[in-house]
Design a protein around this nucleic acid. Sequence first.
DNA 1: GCCAACGTTGGC
DNA 2: GCCAACGTTGGC
Length: 154
Amino acid sequence: MHYWLMKSEPADVSIDDLATFPGQSVAWYGVRNYQARNFMRDQMEIGDGVLFYHSNCKIPGIAGIARVATHAYPDATQFDLKSKYFDAKASGEQPRWFNVDVQLVKKISLVSLAEMRLHPELARMRTLQAGNRLSITPLAPDEWHYITTQLIRD
DNA sequence: GCCAACGTTGGC
DNA sequence: GCCAACGTTGGC
């Protein structure tokens, strides 16, 4: 069992969007960073805990709890000429990019990045480090437990 | 919209 | 394999 923080721009896919999707589930398409890809492809297991994080928006922060719902499989957008995620160097035989499906567990009242910064227990979280841009980061179990039991009140 | 930090690309 | 140039991320 692993724990993850996964960033999504709410203008693209928000927690409310996720709640309306079939099965309240979404393919985590569009990851084009090898480190983040490798987390999905090599380490994620069905049932892993996910903090669904809103990035690049007015109030960035954790917007919900989710779970990993599938193993990794090739990201369909790499083959789609019309997608901004199209990758000419990828082929069906040699896919480059993978994604898992992520399923909503529950929406929460936002735990903002600013609030997270107030808690020394979370000081080592990757997302809080200066200059961190990685869209998928592993969470230490104690960080997951702290956030889900101390910072989430609903 | 600014800009710092980081990742990727490609010439050499 | 180095490294400068460029593109992207994402908080502020």
